[in-house]
């Protein structure tokens, strides 16, 4: 399983949203994309999923140019989950996971025992089988997000691209989803790329981090290396510092809230 791109640029009409973006996925690892709003995280993810065509450069999936592959070929290898995806209103958790088998069953083939087993397994491993018969609309944000991830598992994709999977969730659900993502990568060897807003969550969960600013990649390394420079402060235009809360644990970025520091700063 490999997913990589070199020097891809993406244009929306006249505006260039991504400049010479480089990326290489490490198998079974979690790769985080961070950056301010509008910095190109979603654009980069969609380009990696083959959903938007780069103006220059190309994305390669398993050594093949993604533009030469059919959507079904891509779907058997890679699943993309947008931010707050919408589903038909009467759809249940189980039906969603069934839809995800499309890449394997196609237009006409019936669902065999293998498909049924995979659907049951996907529901089980994301902890949604207890409410598999309930409508997606009735679920809490965290349950719904897990249902969508279970669909990605039912799809048997070895690569998962997630656009801000924890946004709009309370802290309890955020941790639940991050735990699930971590387990998928460690226990099942699923490779994950995710856009994420919380810097500290990114540092503690991800094996590698890319930092984007205005559509340009300004950092691509291990999380610890991010603590060694002041990029977070300059890119997000905030003040703060990295602290080590317990020895051996990943560094924690402690942000100074402007309203408080304004008064504290000597004038």
């Amino acid at each position: 399983m490999s997913l990589a791109c070199s020097k891809i640029s993406i244009d929306y009409g006249q505006r260039r949203a991504l400049f010479d973006f480089d990326f290489a996925l490490q198998p079974g690892r979690i790769h985080g994309l961070i950056g301010p709003n509008g910095s190109g995280k979603s654009t980069a993810l969609q380009a990696l999923a083959g959903l938007i065509k780069p103006a220059s450069g190309s994305v390669e999936l398993d050594g093949r140019q993604i533009t030469t592959m059919s959507r079904r070929e891509i779907a058997r290898r890679l699943a993309f989950l947008p931010q707050q995806p919408s589903a038909p209103e009467e759809m249940t958790v189980e039906q969603l996971a069934r839809q995800a088998r499309f890449a394997h069953v196609g237009l006409l083939r019936g669902y065999g025992p293998h498909d049924e087993k995979l659907i049951a397994w996907a529901l089980e491993s994301t902890g949604v089988s207890d409410f598999a018969g309930r409508g997606l609309q009735e679920l809490s944000g965290g349950e719904r997000q897990r249902a969508w991830i279970s669909a990605a598992l039912a799809q048997e994709a070895r690569i998962l691209l997630l656009d801000e999977p924890t946004s709009y969730l309370d802290i309890g659900y955020q941790v639940e989803i991050l735990d699930l993502i971590h387990r998928l990568s460690r226990d099942r060897g699923v490779s994950i790329v995710m856009a994420i807003h919380d810097i500290n969550q990114a540092i503690s969960v991800c094996d590698r981090i890319s930092l984007l600013q205005g559509g340009r990649l300004v950092f691509d390394d291990e999380p610890r290396a991010l603590a060694a420079n002041n990029l977070v402060e300059t890119v997000f235009r905030i003040r703060g510092r990295f602290v080590e809360i317990t020895p051996g644990s990943p560094p924690h970025f402690d942000v100074e809230l402007a309203r408080w520091s304004d008064g504290a700063r000597d004038h």
């Binding site: 999923a49 059919s70 079904r72 779907a75 058997r76 995806p85 589903a87 038909p88 499309f102 237009l107």
Partner: peptide
């Protein structure tokens, strides 16, 4: 032939394409 695509077309296009639909 269009039964399954019709269900998938009711998702966002980024979702249905990610599920493998042209």
């Amino acid at each position: 032939l269009i039964r399954r695509p019709l269900t998938m077309l009711r998702f966002d296009s980024s979702v249905s394409r990610s599920f493998g639909l042209s």
